[in-house]
Amino acid sequence: MLFNWFNKAPLLEEASTQWLLQSFSWCKNHFDADFFYQQTPLVIPSNQFFPGRADSVHGMAELIFERVKTYAGMAHWPFELLEPGQCALDAPLQIQIEDPLRGTDLPPAAADLPRLPVQYDPRQINNPEAMIATYAHALAYYLSGTATQPPPGDPEHHPHATEVLAIFMGFGLMFANSAFTFRGGCGSCQTVGRAAYLSEFEATYALAIFCVLKEIPPRQVTPYLKKHLRGFFKRAMREVSVANIKTS
C-alpha cells in the first residue's frame, strides 16, 4: 500500500486527456501560435483586467465585451453586441477577415462587412466571470470558422472544442470558475450562470495545459481559482508537464 501512493490514477479518463491535448494542438496549428506565445495573457477576473464603470447594465456589458475582444486579439472584427430582445440575424457562413486574424492595434473591419451578432444575458452582470466566459465562447465560435480543418472529435463536440479554444485565448480561469453553478436558494436571485460544455475539471485541466505551455507558475493562478479546484489544478500541471507536450 505504501508504494501505491506514488502511482496515483490519472485525473481524467485517458480519452478526455488526449482529446484536450489534441484540441490544444489544433488551436496552435490554426489560430496563430506566435500570438499565443507572445501576446496572449492569462486573463484574470479582477478590476485590473476589467476596469471602469457604466451607468447602465448595457453599458457595463459593452465595457466587458470590449475588454474581452481586446484580450482575444479580435477587437478589429465586425462584432455587434445585441441587447436582449434584439433580432439576431444568422451570422455569415464565410467570415471575411483579412489577415492577421488576431492582433493588437489593428484597423477595424470595413463598415460594409456583415456584422457578427453577440447577445448577452443582462442577469450575468452579477456574475461577471460567466459573462466573460460567454463572450469568449462566442468569439471562439466565430474564430473556429476560419480553420481549414475541423477540431478533433465528433462534430457534436464542436461546442466543447470552441470552449478549449476560448481557454487557449486566455480565458481559462473564467471557464473553470463558472463551469458549475449551484442553482438552489432564493427564487428572486438575479444572478445566472452560463451554458457550459466542458466540466469544471476538464476546463481546469485545459487551463493547466495553457499554463504549462505559457510557463505560468501555479502561484499566479491559484489565488483566482475556486478553492476546490486548486489542488486539482496543481496536479494537472504536474501531469501535463510529465507528458512533455511540445511548446513550439
Score class of each variant (00 low, 15 high):
residue 102 R to W: 07
residue 110 A to Q: 11
residue 111 A to T: 11
residue 55 D to S: 15
residue 50 F to E: 11
residue 46 S to Q: 14
residue 109 A to D: 03
residue 70 T to E: 14
residue 74 M to L: 13
residue 118 V to R: 05
residue 85 G to H: 04
residue 92 P to W: 00
residue 55 D to T: 12
residue 25 S to V: 08
residue 58 H to M: 01
residue 94 Q to K: 05
residue 26 W to P: 00
residue 73 G to P: 02
residue 116 L to D: 12
residue 117 P to S: 07
residue 35 F to Q: 04
residue 91 A to V: 02
residue 94 Q to G: 00
residue 29 N to A: 15
residue 24 F to N: 00
residue 112 D to F: 12
residue 38 Q to D: 12
residue 26 W to S: 01
residue 88 A to S: 12
residue 61 A to D: 07
residue 98 E to R: 07
residue 58 H to N: 08
residue 101 L to A: 01
residue 92 P to E: 03
residue 98 E to W: 02
residue 90 D to P: 12
residue 24 F to W: 01
residue 91 A to Y: 07
residue 42 L to I: 07
residue 41 P to W: 11
residue 107 P to H: 08
residue 111 A to I: 12
residue 90 D to Q: 13
residue 49 F to G: 10
residue 50 F to K: 03
residue 85 G to F: 00
residue 55 D to W: 08
residue 115 R to V: 13
residue 80 E to V: 11
residue 93 L to I: 07
residue 81 L to C: 09
residue 78 P to D: 14
residue 72 A to F: 02
residue 109 A to P: 06
residue 56 S to Y: 10
residue 101 L to Y: 03
residue 109 A to V: 06
residue 48 Q to P: 05
residue 67 R to N: 09
residue 92 P to D: 05
residue 24 F to R: 00
residue 118 V to I: 13
residue 110 A to F: 03
residue 68 V to T: 06
residue 103 G to R: 00
residue 79 F to V: 08
residue 39 Q to Y: 12
residue 48 Q to W: 13
residue 73 G to Q: 06
residue 93 L to V: 09
residue 85 G to S: 03
residue 88 A to D: 13
residue 69 K to R: 14
residue 86 Q to D: 15
residue 50 F to H: 10
residue 107 P to L: 05
residue 73 G to L: 05
residue 60 M to E: 15
residue 111 A to E: 15
residue 24 F to V: 04
residue 77 W to V: 09
residue 74 M to P: 00
residue 65 F to C: 09
residue 36 F to P: 01
residue 83 E to N: 14
residue 59 G to T: 03
residue 78 P to F: 11
residue 44 I to L: 15
residue 46 S to H: 08
residue 90 D to E: 13
residue 54 A to T: 09
residue 97 I to E: 00
residue 84 P to V: 06
residue 66 E to Q: 15
residue 108 P to C: 06
residue 85 G to M: 03
residue 25 S to I: 05
residue 70 T to P: 02
residue 27 C to A: 12
residue 68 V to K: 07
residue 39 Q to R: 14
residue 32 D to W: 00
residue 49 F to A: 09
residue 105 D to F: 02
residue 71 Y to D: 03
residue 89 L to T: 14
residue 87 C to H: 14
residue 82 L to C: 12
residue 29 N to E: 15
residue 70 T to N: 06
residue 56 S to C: 07
residue 111 A to V: 09
residue 118 V to E: 04
residue 25 S to C: 02
residue 103 G to F: 00
residue 80 E to P: 04
residue 51 P to A: 06
residue 54 A to R: 15
residue 25 S to T: 08
residue 56 S to T: 15
residue 85 G to T: 08
residue 27 C to G: 02
residue 84 P to N: 01
residue 76 H to I: 04
residue 57 V to T: 09
residue 100 P to S: 08
residue 72 A to T: 06
residue 52 G to V: 06
residue 115 R to G: 10
residue 105 D to E: 06
residue 58 H to W: 05
residue 73 G to M: 04
residue 73 G to K: 02
residue 63 L to N: 15
residue 102 R to H: 01
residue 56 S to M: 04
residue 80 E to Q: 15
residue 52 G to M: 01
residue 84 P to C: 04
residue 91 A to T: 02
residue 76 H to T: 04
residue 82 L to I: 08
residue 119 Q to F: 10
